[in-house]
Computed example of a mutant assay.
Amino acid sequence: MKIAVVSDIHGNVLALEAVLADLKLEAPDMVVNLGDCLSGPLWPEETAAILRETNWPTVRGNHDRFILDEPVDKMAPTDAFAAGRLSAESLDWLRTTAPTIRLPGSVFLCHGTPDNDDRYLTEKVEGPKGHLPDEQTLLAEIKGESAQIICCGHTHIPRVIQLAATGQTILNPGSVGLPSYDETHPNRHNKDAGSPHARYALMIKAAEGWEFQDKKVPYDWDAASAEAQRNGRPFWARALKHGFFGPLS
């Protein structure tokens, strides 16, 4: 069994297309999507048109929820850009996404933590950056979820974490479409993957257990950066081009 795990596409159709080409070579048995599909100053409707056809099990990310639930005039600029460009068909598809998904074989999918789509699981923020939480913090954050594999996104930083106390694995595939960003909650901080590649992960069930692979796929990030710049988002432009957020160069 081979499962591909994608997350945080953020309307970057060029990155998504590159990942799709790589998936054809990998030929997984299943692809799952951990959410934050469309929000971004890039190509939300073009991305949605592809995702509507994939039939991937898809979790609803926090930005997917914002697009669906908040009035456009109260949305942050990134969400409002996407919401204003999505067709009724794409919004209907977004409504089919689920807060969490449980797969056969003891695999649990969420966007943030098992009970909160807007909370980090695999990063702990202290000061302007994040770091790997200690095991006790992770155990507290999974709130008793007992699945052998917990897949989450939201942080855009790839991680594979083995919990010694329970034998569980937490997998974060990183972000397909946005390698770096800044956030103001719980305090202002950056998340930087450190390269502009489109990222996803593979889970492979072998006789001796699960194997995990971090995939880093090149694509035309200069074109994605230029699109963000055209749409008035220079910090997105730099993040897409370099994998680091600000200052501008």
Rank of each mutant, 00 (worst) to 15 (best):
R52Q: 05
R230Y: 06
M30C: 10
D79R: 06
L139G: 04
G232F: 00
A4C: 12
L138I: 10
W93E: 02
D64Q: 05
A140C: 12
H111K: 09
L138T: 11
D92V: 11
V19C: 12
A48V: 00
K216N: 13
P28H: 09
V176Y: 07
P158Y: 07
P57H: 12
S225E: 04
N62A: 09
H10Q: 14
P158C: 10
A198D: 07
R65N: 10
G112S: 08
F81T: 10
A226V: 02
E26N: 13
P104K: 03
L25N: 15
F66W: 07
T155V: 11
A223W: 13
L16P: 04
E45G: 05
V125T: 11
V125L: 05
H10M: 08
G112L: 06
E45R: 01
D79V: 12
S7E: 08
A228T: 06
K74M: 15
E208C: 04
A15P: 05
P133T: 08
T184W: 13
K215Q: 14
H156Y: 04
R199D: 03
G11L: 00
L86W: 04
R119E: 11
P133M: 13
I157K: 01
A198T: 08
E26F: 07
P179E: 11
D36A: 09
V72F: 02
E126W: 08
N116V: 09
I142C: 02
D222E: 15
N172I: 11
G194I: 07
Y181F: 15
V6T: 04
P186L: 09
A198G: 06
P186K: 11
G61K: 02
E53F: 08
H242W: 07
R233I: 09
D222L: 13
K143G: 12
Q168E: 11
K143A: 15
N33D: 14
L23N: 09
A147V: 04
R52D: 07
L38I: 08
E141N: 12
L132H: 08
P41L: 04
I9D: 03
M30V: 14
F245Q: 09
K143D: 13
H131S: 14
N116A: 14
I50D: 00
R52F: 07
L86Q: 03
L14F: 12
R102Y: 00
G153V: 00
G144I: 12
W221C: 06
L109G: 03
G153E: 01
H189E: 06
V19K: 09
V6C: 08
R238F: 00
A239E: 01
R102I: 00
H154C: 03
R238D: 05
C110T: 03
Y219I: 03
D73I: 04
V72D: 07
A48F: 01
F66D: 06
P179V: 01
E123D: 12
E135N: 09
K24D: 13
N231R: 06
V59L: 00
D117T: 01
N190K: 14
H154N: 12
E45C: 06
M30I: 08
V72T: 15
I3H: 01
A88H: 14
A4W: 02
K205L: 15
A98P: 05
F66K: 13
E46Q: 12
C152V: 02
E211A: 14
